[in-house]
């Protein structure tokens, strides 16, 4: 996944250049969705407690945004959760519901502005 870029207003392209490179508002090249940081939609964030986590990966299965970050061992046999990608996590809370109640390694917290 390419490193997310921060957008600055005065660096955005003007209409004349866009008319040349993207007539009809097409977007050249694929994929372009990683450039769209949907994480700023979030009003609550899931907070992960690494010490409680059993790495069952239920949260990864249910996350609709692929925002649960994993580390896969070289032989491919050990897969561990390493965190949450807040660039794309929209704060839907599905991971918190998916996390087994007895483990409780994920919790929603208010987003700080």
């Amino acid at each position: 996944m390419p490193a997310p870029k921060e957008r600055k207003w005065d660096e955005l392209k003007g209409w004349k250049e866009l008319a040349e490179i993207s007539p009809g508002a097409i977007v050249p090249g694929v994929p372009t969705s990683p450039e769209y940081l949907t994480g700023d939609w979030r009003v609550e964030r899931p907070v992960w407690d690494e010490d409680k986590c059993t790495h069952c990966l239920l949260c990864w299965v249910f996350c609709p945004e692929d925002a649960i970050m994993l580390n896969i061992s070289e032989d491919g046999k050990v897969v561990k959760m390493i965190g949450i990608d807040y660039d794309y996590c929209k704060g839907c809370g599905i991971c918190v519901r998916a996390c087994p109640p007895k483990i409780h390694a994920l919790e929603m917290a208010p987003e700080e502005v």
């Binding site: 957008r7 955005l12 392209k13 209409w15 508002a25 694929v30 372009t32 769209y36």
Partner: peptide, 20 residues
């Protein structure tokens, strides 16, 4: 490859419409 008809919000819609 291109994307046709994607979401285009406050930051770019006006520029694309201006081109049209």
């Amino acid at each position: 490859p291109i994307t046709v008809g994607p979401l285009d919000l406050q930051d770019y819609f006006f520029e694309h419409k201006r081109g049209q």
